[in-house]
Design a protein around this nucleic acid. Structure first.
Lengths: 210, 210, 210, 210
DNA sequence: CATGAATGAGATTTCATTCAT
DNA sequence: AATGAATGAAATCTCATTCAT
């Protein structure tokens, strides 16, 4: 007999876009967790089913394929991220303030949905080139452009140093911010606000005392 | 039973990393390239054999298992890295100079052996916990300690700002440096020396003009 | 355990084959169409349910199994066919007239219920041996005997040539007639009466001019 | 332990086009037999492997997929058939002689490679539309044209009756000839030459005595 | 050293069927 | 009558590994 684990309320779902059932969202959460910790390929559908307390075949009542789960998780994550970044860019004029908010929001997202972030970090490279996941690259580029506009605007207005390449700088920042998902622990010594703050301190002021 | 050929010390390879006098070394280079680009699990032994122009079964004349290839590549890479970092620490007193050299050497390593770096970046997490690969964590921690000593020494001597956590700072730096393997192109616009230089400029001086 | 609903006699369907007063009959018509076009095994119960606008599980309110649908379709078809062939044999004396009517009726049946014919053509071989479908072979043999009696009677009375084997001749005729379901189009250039007529012309008179 | 059945000589292979090994040809023969008797979809790769005395996974050492086996069998069969039909058309002038030879060769093919014929008969419909099997339709149409040319040539020269549609006549003949694979037994009462002869007798002279 | 055939475990997926609601 | 979730068996396919030649 299958052990049925209590179904969590849909409340913590953050408003799933697809009208799908509770069960579907719950399964996606389980999948995201496993994909993030073991890697997409190393996670078997049986792993997911086991965690959900059902048989692996039963997953296909909810999803057409393992890939569809990955797709749905990434689409949801990236869509929301892009939306939020665009809103930040629109709401603020000051490049430095924009960068502040972009960084802070990123660390907050890592805090809130670490699985999706880790998944994106680890799998996006191998997804590149697959038609189904074309949006991953596309939306990634749109996000890059938002950050780049803030950086170059800051350089032009003189608030950011101009003797560094903006694209390079973006990559440095992006890697530091998102890679932190690997070591950040929500209940660790530093909460995400502190991490943001310390990072921005170094990023803006530099490590060396004058 | 697998036929284990005597494992050579890293020394006789280290002399001629590109020389490829040996079939074994050649196969490892092919494996590293494939592991790095597709991921270890996604690379099949047939992929490696195909690239080498032999049948997959024939690989087992050279290596006891696919895992042994991974092991050998990582052991060689990490061993050399640790050795070099230790040498830098010993040779220099000035914490800032040490950090300079650590960063510069790291980017140089990414330039020279991007496959091994990518492999380490992508696979070390899933290797954690496997007895055979215990050294990966161990040597990683030893490397961390070298960087941490430089950072805290710098903070104590007043050359590095003291209002940031050294461990956090290490992670920021480490992630930026090593993650660059994902986008760094040896023949791209920036050579590794330029990347080092720009990164150190921001790291030391900060992004914001005073 | 499957819930078996009382099986209706073919009679109360036979009166209104196209009427579709009933959900059950409607579902059978959909199933027959799909079975005929994709093959029984390749048709999933979900395919049938989809076409009917319900969920696959709901089909089991109407039928105990997928097999029951096949059974019902074939039983209805073969029963009716046998009945009609027997009636033709009884009504006519002249072997040639009997053969005329058998052929004409066959093409008419193909015209009217192509799905059932195709189903019988394609699946009867794999049904052979299954107890549940023993009647398929049995009724098929009864039909064969009707045709054979007409052929041998014709040979004995001298109207049909006696230098060919009757059983072989039956097979030639049967295959030509029933295989036409594969290419016959109800709205095509030839209506079934024309097909009958052309076939009988060749069958009786031969292809070669005197 | 797997029971190894004796490998047949390649001699009865009729000159396989692909240079492949003996084993491959042997496996294809087994597959063809099973595909023909159970149907392609109903035959599992395990069935084939069992018959060959190996494990199902081992089949994939020889073939990329179950579909590849079907492909290879059909391509070989149809290619040879088309070639032979074309040769007959070229060698003979007299339409009646051409038709004679086409019919005789067809029954001979049924005698010699009944599995491939049955496979073609049963599966070609469901293959229609699949890019990989586009040649099945194409080559089938080329074969049709050969038969049609013989029929219309005969009608024009007055040797075949002109009051029947040639295309319809072709279908009647084709269905009779090829469908016989369902009942023809190589060791039965009639050898294929006798079947040919009886069929041609009826086809040419008609069933009715003048 | 290399081939080529095979193993055997395990992966994803399919699908008829059941059943509580 | 119908839904929606689940079962469970079986299918195709993958792949690291073995081993006789």
């Amino acid at each position: 007999m299958a052990v049925r684990r209590p179904v969590r309320t849909a409340a913590d779902n953050g408003g799933a876009p697809k009208g799908g059932s509770d069960r579907r969202a719950e399964l996606l959460r389980i999948a995201a967790r496993l994909f993030a910790s073991r890697g997409y390929t190393q996670t078997t559908v049986r792993d997911i089913a086991d965690e959900a307390g059902i048989l692996s075949g039963s997953l296909y009542h909810h999803f057409a394929s393992k890939e569809e789960m990955l797709d749905e998780i990434l689409r949801d994550f990236l869509g929301r991220l892009l939306e939020r970044f665009a809103a930040i860019e629109q709401a603020e004029q000051d490049p430095r303030k924009v960068l502040d908010l972009l960084v802070q929001h990123s660390f907050a997202v890592i805090h809130e949905t670490p699985d999706a972030v880790a998944l994106y970090q680890n799998e996006s490279a191998s997804l590149s080139g697959q038609p189904r996941f074309a949006y991953v690259d596309q939306w990634g580029r749109r996000i890059e452009r938002i950050w780049l506009r803030a950086l170059t605007a800051g350089q032009e207005s003189g608030v950011f140093r101009a003797d560094v390449d903006a694209r390079l700088t973006y990559r440095f920042i992006r890697d530091t911010v998102w890679c932190s998902v690997r070591w950040y622990r929500p209940r660790g010594r530093f909460r995400h606000e502190a991490v943001s703050e310390q990072y921005l301190r170094i990023l803006y002021g530099g490590l060396v005392t004058e």
